[in-house]
């Protein structure tokens, strides 16, 4: 396979990581809402943890984007 083609395929495959991160972020907010509706009184106190979980899940998706960018522009 040509080098250029392999790079682009790799960059495309990296997009799977973005989709996986979408599942993760959805899971974070989904679980939060589910339990927040059960006990709305405790929900506000957990907002910081919600965003920590969001940040952790999102970072791994963004790494997939970095991989794609490195494959297209750097490698």
């Amino acid at each position: 396979m040509e080098m250029e083609a392999a790079k682009l395929i790799g960059a495309g495959l990296a997009a799977i990581g973005a989709g996986m991160a979408a599942i993760g972020v959805g899971n974070v907010f989904g679980s939060f809402l589910e339990s927040a509706l059960r006990n709305p009184g405790a929900a506000d106190g957990q907002q910081g943890r919600l965003f920590i979980g969001f940040a952790a899940a999102e970072l791994l998706g963004l790494l997939a984007f970095v991989v794609a960018m490195i494959l297209i522009f750097v490698a």
């Binding site: 940040a55 970072l59 963004l62 984007f65 970095v66 960018m69």
Partner: peptide
Amino acid sequence: FSLGLRLFVAMMA
């Protein structure tokens, strides 16, 4: 790294 990377990639993307 993760702190800087997160902000930069999110804005860039």
